[in-house]
Structure formats: C-alpha cells, structure tokens
Design a protein around this nucleic acid. Structure first.
Lengths: 346, 346
DNA sequence: TTGTAGGCGTTATCAG
DNA sequence: CTGATAACGCCTACAA
C-alpha cells in the first residue's frame, strides 16, 4: 500500500463516515454533537461507521468553524522554584482537564524574542481561548502584549500590570506577619529578612507586613537586617555568607522562600552555627523537601494546588462569559511549625 | 462600539490586509511567507497594511490548509519527581521553541479517563505533529493508543512499549555499577539497594548492574538487601524504617533516586545513625537540593537538560521526515562525589 | 428527522 | 510578479 506520508495513515473524514453509514455529513455531525436530535437507528449506524473507520473529527477544522480551540496558554516565568510551581500546575491541569481544555505551555525562561513572538502570534492568531499567567512578565512582542488581544487572562501568584486582570494570590501580608510574629513570640528581638526580587509584587505585601509586625513589638530599623534575594538556592547561600560576616548576628530569620531558607541554613550550619539553638529560621512556600532537610523547616504552607485550580476555574468562567470575576482572590497560607525555629537562647 | 464578543476585537483577516494594500489575498499570503517572491514595493505596502491593522494569520485556518499545527504533545507521567523533570522539560522547551514549535502538556497524573480520551482525540484529530513521552504509560483510550496514529513519537527517560519508538536514555546500567563500585571500593561489603517501581524500565538495567558489580567483587545474595520503592520521598522513608529494623545493617546504600536517598538519610539519622560514618549513601539523579541536605548527597548526575533537548531534536528530525532516528540514544550520567558516602568504618 | 449548501481564513495551483 | 479560485474538514442555517 502506498501513501505519500505514512502519517496520513487512513485518516477518515466526516464524508467517509457519512458514506459508510448511508447518511449525509450533516447527520454525522449531528449524531456526534447532539445524539438525541437523530433517530436512534440512524445514530447507531453512524456510531458503527465511526468505530469501524476510527474516525476522529479534525480539530483544526472544528476550531476554524467554532472559533475556539479549547486550549489555554499557561505562561510560566523565569524558572522560579519548580518544586513550588509543579503543584500549582497540577491544580491547573486538573481543573482544565475536567473541563475538556488543553494546556499549552509558554515558557518565558528562555530569553528568546522568538518565544515571545510565537506566543503572541498564537494568541492573536485566535489559537488560544484564555491564558493563565504565573510570571510577572506578560508575553509581548513589538509592543503588543497578549493583554491587548482582549482574551481572558488570570494571574496566579502574580499580579499582572494590566488594568483588569484578575489575580489569585495568597495572603502574603498576613503570612509574613505570621512568620515574624512567631519568631517574636519566641523571644527573638533581632531579626533578618531574606527578600524576594526587588519590585516583585510579593514584596509589596510581605515586607511591609514584616515591618508592621516588628513595629507592633516595639522594634525598629536597628533591630533587623535585610538580605536581597530572588527565591533560589544561590541567594540563600549569599544571604548566609553575608550573615556570617555580621558582627552582631540576628537570632531569627524570615525567608521569603523555602529554597533560600534551606540554603541559608546549610550555609550557616556549615560554619558552625546551630539551628534553631543559635538561629531560628522560618521559610515560605511549604515545598515537600522542607520535611527532609536538617532540621526540618518551619514554614508557611501555601495552598499550591488550590492556587492553580482556583485560577483555572476563574478563567473558565471568564471564557464562558460568566459574570465578572473578582479582581483578586486571596487564599490562605498556614504556618507550619517544625524544627528550624525555636525559643531564643538566653 | 458594539461587538458580539469582546474577544473578537478588531481581528483583521487576510482580506482586510489585501484591501488595505490594494493587492489580492494571495499576494498578502506570499509576501508573508516568501517575502522575496514579491516585488519590494508590493511587499512594503503589504507589511505596512499588516502593521496598521495588527494582522496575525489565523492559526486554525493555516493549520487546516497546511495540515500541521507545529505543536508537540509532551506526555508526563505519574508525578515522578518534579525537581528532576522540570529540567528535562526545559531542555524540551528550548529545543522546540527554537524550531517554532509549541508544547502541549499532557498530564497522565490525573487518573481520569477523560484526560486520556482528550489526548487521543487531539492526536487523531490531526492537531499534533509529534509527541514526547516521559512516562511509561502511553495515552490510549478505547484500545487505541497515540502510537496507532503513526505520528512521530520519542520516549525520554522511558521506554515505550511500541515497536519502533526511539528512546533517549541515560546509561542506567553503567551508572548503577558506578554507584555500587564506588561503595565497594571504599570497603563496603554489605549493601542495600533501594529500587524503583517494579517493572520500570530503569530497573531492568540498573538492578542487574548492581548485581553484576557485586558479583565482580565476589559478593552474593547474602551480602545485600533490597528495598522496594518508587522514587518518591515516602518510599525513602519506608526503606529507612525497614533498614532500622534490620539486625545486621548494611553499611552502603545504593538508591535509585535522590528523593529516596534524602528521605532515607533523614529517617536513619533521626534514629541516631550517622552518615557517612555508619552508613554511606549514593543517590541517583543529581537534583539541586542534593547540595543542601545534610550531609550533601553523593549521587549520579543525569544530563537532565540534554535528555530533553536531545529527545526534542530527534523528534523534530522525524517530523521533518529526515533519516530514521537511532532506536536508542544513550547519554552519560556522572558520579558526583560529595559527603554522604565515605570509607567503611573499621 | 434529514439533506443541501455556504462559509470559517488560509494557502497552493494555475493562468495571465 | 500577481490574481482568481479551489481546496482543507467541519458545522449549521435553511429547506425539504
């Protein structure tokens, strides 16, 4: 048997099914889409033909007619902690999958104009029904961003610049106050804060929360030091090294990610500092590995799966044109007390 | 201004561009696809119109005509260690992105028939140009698997059942022998092996490698114990607990994943066993966190990014119909000596 | 209930 | 070099 392209293997079209079933293409289409608008006997004949020919409707053609691809673009940003995001993605995947939507991954990791252009073209090419943005940057090319397409967009763990982009967030300020308060309650009066990237929207919530909680305890600018970071292991190491050089070392550390907390801990322990006896550390995120480091990490557990699934639900609602979604949806994080933080040494 | 659907916002079609530029649609199409088959002046006029109208070709229509979506399906399996796969995915993304292909994520995590049906429909609906399979299961529904579509498929870190599916693998046997030999060379004569899932293709390479290396050192069935596992933290904990109950404890441990090694280490250390003084442990994968646990993890570093990018390159070659790809491509892992393994105690 | 026929937006073929 | 036109495969008025 000769075929131009082995891939085209026996692809049945709707016409083939119609012929095999002895009906028109319209009837086949109907039988598939609205089974009850067709005589039972006809329906059976059509189904039989479908099975026999292994017919599957052509997605492109359907999409061209329907104007919808049932595909959602998920934009993930500069590789911010995979251990954290993998679970958010799972939430997205489950929610979208149940609704019959597919996930197209758009990775902004790759600093490549081409990638961004590609994504923008996909969106403006009508290929995408909606987008979930997990990065601060929004794909854009030639001054045109996917926001301009008017397509529904929801930001998850991020705050899009756009005017009316609904966001799903964790209650950052509350959580950061909880981290801080926990340390203060255990007697720590001299703290360190390992920050997220400058300008990051989290920082806008968390750092003020940290300061507020200090103030509430009567502590001021002299009672803490701030280390810059960007959530990854490397910045935790850097913070640890800076910490070791300090003349007067804080006894409690608030970290804006678990990775930084873990790397910080490793770095200072290697230099002989004991955790939590000498220094207490509280992380942020609640990734699995926190249970297996030494000592186990006290941290803020984010509802990772729900962040993803909630964002997806909201997006699906927007795609279906339902009532305007809330501008911002806040989920709760929770302080998870383990072994890396304890009472201050007297 | 009234629109039926805000999403349709000012979507220019090729005809609009043609009109604005005073040419035919055919010319617009040509100017965009083969700029040099068109008079420079015409080209300029077309480009100007395109810019002015913000025209982007409709992806569905193009796909319908061209028969190609430039989209690749990436099938990831039951959530096997995100920290490991995230980097493989990045390799895939980079390679495909450069070639102008998009990534559609198919998650088999979700044990949902619907998901599988959806993926199969996408494939048989001509929506997908090729697939990269990172899971042992291959999406199938109603007895029809995506393999039957005849579409190009490449397996990465997995071995598809299908007859002619090229696979990209790490040299599992060699690596596992290296783990084992390293321990033996340091004097360990009584080992433990923490396995991957039963029947997993890795096991088919690694376990025999482990046994062979033992044999080469004159060790036999009485000189090791085997713990079952499936790569995750939980099975590392289980192995650790089983280990602690042993009357005669091995002094060297070969683990088939870093997660298991880390959880194992944590579990036995908590019970007072010292690493590496009492027990030496060698992991497998080379995930980042290995540098931050206590003690740092000696492990096999897999070329994660390259596994992904190599698989993608091979797939792209197949899609373009190039010469038959190698049945199997083997990349090298490397023993990375850190602190969790040392000489046996005398 | 079923069939006919037009069109979704693009590209490729074929004349001019 | 450019333009008219016929597909690509499906869905859905509209008519029967």
């Amino acid at each position: 048997m000769q075929r131009r392209d082995p891939r085209e293997a026996a692809k049945a079209r709707i016409g083939d099914v119609a012929r095999a079933a002895g009906v028109s293409t319209a009837t086949v289409s109907r039988a598939l889409t609205f089974p009850d608008r067709v005589l039972e006997e006809t329906r059976e004949r059509v189904f039989a033909a479908v099975r026999q020919l292994g017919y599957t409707p052509n997605v492109a053609a359907r999409q061209l007619r329907a104007g919808s691809s049932r595909t959602v673009l998920v934009v993930v940003g500069k590789r911010r902690n995979p251990p954290f995001f993998s679970e958010v993605l799972r939430g997205i995947d489950v929610a979208l999958g149940q609704a019959g939507y597919s996930v197209l991954m758009g990775n902004l990791d790759i600093h490549d104009d081409n990638t961004e252009k590609h994504l923008v073209d996909l969106v403006f090419g009508g290929f995408i029904d909606g987008a979930l943005v997990l990065s601060n940057a929004i794909p854009s090319f030639n001054g045109r961003s996917i926001i301009d397409s008017g397509m529904p967009i929801v930001a998850i763990c991020a705050e899009a610049d756009g005017p009316n982009i609904p966001a799903v967030l964790v209650d950052d300020e509350v959580c950061c106050r909880a981290q801080t308060r926990y340390l203060i309650e255990m007697g720590h009066r001299h703290l360190a804060y390992i920050a997220g990237p400058k300008g990051n929207f989290n920082e806008l919530e968390r750092y003020p929360g940290f300061l507020a909680e200090l103030a509430a305890a009567g502590l001021g600018p002299d009672d803490f030091v701030r280390f810059e970071g960007n959530y990854d292991f490397a910045s935790g190491v850097a913070a640890g090294e800076a910490f070791l050089k300090l003349e007067r070392r804080p006894t409690g550390v608030v970290s804006c990610s678990d990775e930084m907390a873990i790397a910080f801990m490793k770095t200072i322990r290697r230099a002989g500092v004991r955790v939590p006896e000498d220094v207490s550390i509280v992380g942020f995120d609640g990734i699995e590995i926190g249970d297996y480091v030494e000592p186990t990490l006290t941290t803020i557990r984010q509802p990772r799966f729900e962040l993803g699934s909630t964002g997806a639900e909201i997006l699906l609602g927007m795609i279906k044109g339902e009532t305007a979604p809330p501008r911002v949806t806040v989920l709760k994080g929770e302080l998870d007390k383990r072994d890396s933080a304890g009472p201050v040494k007297v």
